[in-house]
């Protein structure tokens, strides 16, 4: 392996997009650091009641 790159990724933001990006990366062979400014991950989606158009619960 003569690459100078590092096999890890920093994901900034623990909202739905950041979380899923982190999961995909981790599941495809990269070490992931998920960085979130707030005290918990989840972002805005976790605060929603239902989601359109299926009215599924956002939690």
């Amino acid at each position: 392996m003569n690459s100078t790159k590092t096999g890890s990724v920093v994901v900034i933001g623990g909202g739905i997009s950041g979380m899923l990006s982190a999961l995909d990366l981790a599941n495809s062979g990269f070490y992931v650091y998920l960085v979130e400014k707030g005290p918990s991950i989840g972002g805005v989606m976790a605060q929603l009641d239902k989601t359109f158009p299926t009215n599924d619960c956002a939690m």
Binding site: M1, G7, S17, S21, D24, F30
Partner: peptide, 22 residues
């Protein structure tokens, strides 16, 4: 979709070091 797409793009970028840190 963006989340997965970004993972794919980052993966492409780091293709040759995949699996070296896990």
């Amino acid at each position: 979709l963006d989340a997965s797409a970004a993972a794919s793009a980052a993966g492409d970028f780091l293709a040759d070091v995949r699996g070296t840190m896990t």
